[in-house]
Computed example of a mutant assay.
Amino acid sequence: MPAVRDKIVAAFDAEVYDSGSMAEVSPWMALGSALDAPGMFCWQDLVYTEVCDPQDYRRVPYGQEGTPVYTTLERVSQPMIRLLSNDLTRWEAPDASRGRTYPFLPRGIYGRIDDMFVVRGENIYPSAIDDVVMGAPGYGGEHRIVITRDGSMDELVVQVEFDPAACGTPVEEWRARVETDLRTVLGVGALVVPTSPGTFPRTDFKARRVVDDRTLLDGLRKNGGAS
């Protein structure tokens, strides 16, 4: 994601290029970035890539979002025909002005279909929340996404470690800005709760940042343990 990429570039003064594949289609890379711009090309020479609707696996039109599906017949002992990735991306039509005539993923791979959860009718991907909070000045290194339910209304709470020394902005002003950015990206409001750096154990896995209390509440109600 862009926020992580920017941190790597800043920390190591490195050139960072996105690429992607799946073990089942290796050793060939299916996706790769350009030298001078973000995004990834679908290298169609050996691995044919489609972006498909995750419900019916039909190819979506250019400009729409879906999951990459890969086909390669190069490995004759183990050909892969329409291998479902469950990743999330949006693709655009080939454009020779980019220097290549492959389909293009302007934001690369930015999530997983199976990480998605629904809040107030909106499909929410943890990676979208991660990109907003990790890119905010003053981000303290870790966060948690908590989904609860008050009656019939879902509530989305994002607990974010806040480092005032790295921000220079009062915490309430910082919190309000992050809430605005989250609403713009997600389409629903989220309550941001600043916490001290070091509050949460470190994790490299997006799904482990998500705590969905609705499942517990529904289970208690089903078993008669909650009203």
Rank of each mutant, 00 (worst) to 15 (best):
residue 105 L to C: 04
residue 8 I to D: 04
residue 58 R to A: 10
residue 136 A to V: 04
residue 166 A to G: 15
residue 156 L to K: 02
residue 54 P to Q: 06
residue 8 I to G: 01
residue 113 I to F: 05
residue 68 P to I: 04
residue 204 D to M: 09
residue 49 T to D: 02
residue 174 W to L: 09
residue 74 E to S: 10
residue 210 V to E: 04
residue 212 D to C: 09
residue 144 R to C: 00
residue 213 D to T: 06
residue 85 S to Y: 06
residue 106 P to N: 09
residue 60 V to Y: 11
residue 17 Y to I: 10
residue 205 F to A: 11
residue 81 I to R: 12
residue 117 F to K: 09
residue 17 Y to D: 03
residue 36 D to T: 13
residue 112 R to E: 00
residue 208 R to G: 04
residue 148 T to W: 04
residue 220 L to K: 14
residue 185 V to P: 01
residue 24 E to D: 14
residue 123 N to I: 07
residue 118 V to I: 15
residue 160 V to M: 02
residue 116 M to K: 13
residue 144 R to L: 02
residue 167 C to M: 06
residue 142 E to T: 10
residue 163 D to H: 10
residue 217 L to M: 13
residue 226 A to T: 05
residue 60 V to A: 09
residue 166 A to V: 04
residue 223 N to P: 00
residue 157 V to L: 11
residue 165 A to R: 14
residue 115 D to T: 04
residue 189 G to V: 05
residue 123 N to A: 15
residue 227 S to Y: 14
residue 50 E to S: 10
residue 87 D to K: 05
residue 95 D to N: 14
residue 99 G to M: 06
residue 71 T to Q: 10
residue 160 V to G: 01
residue 88 L to A: 05
residue 122 E to M: 12
residue 210 V to K: 01
residue 145 I to E: 00
residue 21 S to E: 03
residue 75 R to H: 11
residue 120 R to C: 09
residue 126 P to I: 02
residue 136 A to D: 00
residue 139 Y to S: 05
residue 11 A to L: 12
residue 222 K to Y: 13
residue 111 G to K: 01
residue 188 V to H: 01
residue 125 Y to G: 05
residue 226 A to V: 08
residue 36 D to C: 08
residue 86 N to F: 10
residue 50 E to A: 08
residue 109 I to A: 02
residue 55 Q to Y: 07
residue 28 W to D: 06
residue 98 R to H: 09
residue 114 D to Q: 07
residue 81 I to N: 06
residue 49 T to S: 12
residue 188 V to E: 06
residue 16 V to A: 06
residue 216 L to E: 14
residue 121 G to V: 08
residue 211 V to Q: 04
residue 209 R to Q: 07
residue 55 Q to M: 10
residue 150 D to K: 15
residue 73 L to H: 15
residue 217 L to W: 03
residue 136 A to H: 00
residue 147 I to T: 09
residue 134 M to K: 13
residue 90 R to F: 03
residue 119 V to R: 00
residue 111 G to Y: 01
residue 189 G to S: 15
residue 11 A to P: 03
residue 210 V to M: 08
residue 67 T to K: 01
residue 214 R to G: 09
residue 81 I to C: 07
residue 1 M to I: 06
residue 45 D to V: 12
residue 34 A to K: 08
residue 74 E to A: 11
residue 96 A to P: 10
residue 51 V to W: 01
residue 129 I to Y: 00
residue 74 E to T: 11
residue 50 E to V: 08
residue 140 G to Q: 02
residue 206 K to F: 05
residue 47 V to I: 14
residue 152 S to W: 07
residue 81 I to L: 09
residue 158 V to I: 15
residue 82 R to C: 09
residue 96 A to K: 15
residue 140 G to W: 01
residue 145 I to F: 05
residue 27 P to L: 03
residue 140 G to T: 07
residue 188 V to W: 03
residue 222 K to Q: 14
residue 43 W to H: 13
residue 25 V to W: 00
residue 71 T to A: 04
